[in-house]
């Protein structure tokens, strides 16, 4: 009885017809759910507002830099800022460094913390699980959408910033931190790598947010928890007495991408960073999975 009933044979006639009409427009089921998830994340008014803010800040910062650099007493800003006057491409990096301290983590925490807890608070989680969407499958799709959101926000920030740099500042061959000069195309490619590296950092943070999201039915709680982890980590990273613990902090390697602007490329910082991000993704992904696949859904 189990075997015959377990295989999805013996469906009603409607389902047979459904299956026969399949083929013309074949969409794999996981992709359907993923597409639906992307629509949910990227069409939600709140998230669009977040992306709007992420796009606006580089514009504002670009104008601000232009004003401060052309005025008396220019320079002395954050890393890469001094290079901006010489080459607009560096605006992408300067802006990214600034945005990584608050705005980018905030945006990613909002989306990640909302992933499961948001569905629970809307009462949509029980509906999805009763479909059944499958808990592991739903979590994987949620993580994938967080990855895409992190990627989109980092590329958006860097893209708008570089665009502003091109508009407001002179652009040409890029002088690297090591003093060597490379063609503009190579310089832009390196900026792209930096954006991807920052996205990887945000994915690691997103996995922390996702894990927090499986622990509560209040999205605000999950978002706040993830942000508190970011702030606590940044504070601990600034305390020299804790230097032994620094490499294990989630935010420690977020800015370790300057090696990409040397010739030859110094990979050590980036490698350590990616290793740290992968470890965080693995640990908190596992926490989220263990929690979500076993928890009672009473929301």
């Amino acid at each position: 009885m189990w075997t015959s009933a377990a295989s999805p044979t013996g469906p009603d006639s409607g389902e047979l017809a459904e299956r026969q009409s399949r083929g013309a427009k074949h969409v794999p089921p996981w992709f359907r759910l993923f597409r639906s998830e992307l629509r949910l994340v990227f069409c939600r008014p709140r998230n669009l507002a977040l992306l709007g803010v992420l796009a606006f800040i580089p514009v504002a910062l670009g104008v601000l830099f232009k004003l401060s650099l052309s005025g008396p007493g220019g320079g002395g800003g954050p890393a890469f800022l001094n290079q901006v006057a010489g080459n607009g491409v560096f605006l992408g990096l300067a802006v990214l460094v600034l945005m990584l301290s608050l705005f980018l983590p905030l945006a990613v925490c909002v989306v990640a913390g909302d992933a499961i807890a948001g569905e629970a608070s809307h009462g949509t989680l029980r509906g999805l699980l009763a479909v059944p969407a499958g808990r592991t499958r739903l979590l994987a799709v949620k993580l994938a959408s967080i990855v895409l959101f992190a990627l989109a926000s980092c590329l958006l920030v860097v893209g708008v910033a570089v665009l502003m740099g091109v508009v407001l500042f002179p652009v040409g061959r890029v002088t690297l931190l090591s003093g060597t000069t490379v063609p503009l195309s190579v310089g832009l490619l390196r900026v792209l790598f930096v954006a991807l590296y920052a996205a990887a950092a945000m994915v690691a943070l997103g996995s922390i947010g996702l894990a927090a999201s499986t622990l509560t039915v209040h999205p605000v709680g999950a978002i706040a928890a993830a942000l508190v982890i970011v702030l606590a980590s940044e504070i601990a990273d600034a305390v020299p007495q804790l230097s032994a613990a620094h490499p294990f902090l989630p935010t420690h390697f977020w800015l370790s991408f300057d090696g990409l602007f040397r010739a030859p490329v110094d990979w050590s910082g980036v490698q350590h960073g990616l290793l740290s991000f992968a470890a965080y993704l693995l640990i908190f992904g596992a926490v989220a999975w263990a929690r979500f696949t076993s928890a009672d859904v009473a929301s």
Binding site: E18, S36, V131, A133, G134
Partner: peptide, 12 residues
């Protein structure tokens, strides 16, 4: 969205 979550439903 509900229907997209159903892997046995026919998207067509």
């Amino acid at each position: 969205r509900q229907d997209a979550a159903d892997r046995t439903a026919n998207p067509a």
